[in-house]
Amino acid sequence: MNTTLFRRICTASPPLLFAVLVLKLWLTGTIGYYVNGRTIWIVLLGGSLAATIGLGALWRSSEENVNASSLWKPLIFAVPLAVGLLVPARPLSASSGQSSSLGSLQLASHVASGGGGDLFGYWMNALSDHPEPGWWTGRHVTLVGFVAHQTGLPPRSFILGRYLVTCCVVDASLLGFPVQLDRTVRAPDEGAWIQVSGVFGTRYWTDPSGQHYPLINHATISGVSIPSTPYLSP
């Protein structure tokens, strides 16, 4: 390979690698693990633009005058792209620092109700709309989320959580309901995605910031795969 071709490839590789990463995430249906569903089109547009720029830079036939000392920059750009291409896509987990506390209940009123049988958003809206305990007592619920632990929960309890993502995962806020298991039910592992069916009781749990949550009791749990849209949307 001659030097000119090598430099041309170095210049073109960052946008081309970005385009390949976007293509991979799009084809595997995992872009939603990183950004909100409503902004996926921006990422796809960026991928197309990057492919155009990369191919144009690769094809450029006129005489070039690329400074050799600037060749390390494409290499730096390539590192995160290579990580994105090689590491399997995974949504934000329960062990992230963002799950250390539940998000403000003010956010609950902004959650979209969702669709396709996913009622997590609907019940979060209800949490904002119905602060009175009487409304919740005896209502049956079936929800899908991941297991998160919080300080101050009653024994044999966990938070069934989902992240609310407005733009991309960096702004994720944990929302969820406390679930209290009967003695006969085995506690699920932290971070596991599960389906919980249970009934809201009369008791409330108050988190360290003073927000009240109705407890889901008599819960049955079963493992589920990670949904294609793991996050809640505003």
Binding site: L21, L25, Y33, Y34, I42, P80, G84, C168
Partner: peptide
């Protein structure tokens, strides 16, 4: 995941 989220957006 968080890094790629910001980077992609």
């Amino acid at each position: 995941t968080v890094f790629l989220g910001i980077f992609l957006e």
